[in-house]
């Protein structure tokens, strides 16, 4: 396996890849700047579970990548090696039981283990949430995110609630429990940097927990088509220190009462 890693990671292959992409771009008159840059990949990870998702992705990428190379390689090899001029008479073979058992059983083992590994990560992310320090309610509507924090009484849906539009602030390192609702049609709460997505379904309350691991300014996206303003249903997520979060909460509370 390590030879494969060395091969894929080697500069010769990387250069060749970049060369191919650049050539393709130049032929089409496009800007080849991105071809050499490694930026076209996952956005920063800001949540405690994001690295597990990325890891799962990479595991699958490695497994499928190797299968991909083997199969495409074999296909090309057969097409060249067994072309008619090189092999005028084909073999009269109807099958081979043992080979077929092998390529049934091995993929079965691989996908079953992938399913088990995925289930473990999934159970962690979407199973019983850990104890939370903060509760937020997000109500989606065409085409805005209504964000609600509890007031000084610490309870949601009371007089002193703090209501915002498209602004979600979260304290770093704290577990926040998000209650997800919708007023009208289905929306989907998606913060790419959290690697998290959950549909906001009218009539249901979705629950999602998130623990940001470092401060940052990112955006939340609506990932389920919700009408003409769907593409513009953009919210802003600010992850800041617990103190900064508290003072922001205070300040917003004052502003709201003005």
């Amino acid at each position: 396996m390590c030879w494969a890693r060395r091969l894929v990671g080697s500069s010769a292959v990387r250069n060749f890849k970049a060369l191919l992409l650049t050539a393709y771009c130049l032929v089409l008159g496009a800007d080849p700047a991105w071809a050499g840059s490694a930026r076209v990949w996952f956005p920063d990870n800001l949540s405690s579970v994001g690295s597990q998702v990325d890891q799962m992705f990479l595991v699958i990428l490695w497994i499928t990548g190797i299968i991909f190379l083997l199969v495409e390689g074999a296909l090309l090899w057969f097409l060249i090696r067994y072309r008619q001029p090189a092999n005028p008479r084909a073999a009269y073979v109807h099958g081979c039981r043992s080979a077929e058992v092998i390529w049934t059983v091995i993929p079965a083992i691989i996908v079953t283990s992938l399913a088990f590994a995925s289930q473990r990560v999934w159970a962690h992310i979407r199973g019983t949430p850990p104890a939370h320090q903060l509760e937020v309610e997000i109500t989606a509507e065409q085409f805005a995110w209504n964000v609600r924090y509890a007031g000084p009484d610490g309870r949601l849906h009371t007089e002193d609630d703090l209501e915002l539009i498209n602004q979600l602030h979260l304290p770093v390192d704290q577990v926040a429990l998000v209650h997800l609702k919708s007023k009208d049609v289905i929306h989907s709460f998606f913060v790419p940097q959290f690697r998290m997505k959950l549909d906001a379904v009218p009539g249901l309350t979705g629950r999602l927990w998130v623990q940001p691991i470092k401060p940052g300014q990112v955006e939340m996206v609506c990932a389920e088509l919700c009408g003409l303003g769907h593409y513009r249903m953009r919210g802003y997520v600010t992850i800041e220190s617990a103190e900064a979060f508290q003072s922001w909460l205070e300040q917003t509370r004052v502003e709201q009462s003005l």
Binding site: L79, Q84, N87, W103, V111
Partner: peptide
């Protein structure tokens, strides 16, 4: 998820069998 993963198995069988059809053919 499990059922979906499992569906990769017969799909794989088809792809491998196609490859094996080409093997030692006269293309």
């Amino acid at each position: 998820m499990v059922a979906t993963m499992v569906i990769a198995v017969p799909t794989g069988v088809k792809i491998f069998n196609w490859l094996a059809t080409l093997w030692r053919g006269s293309i």
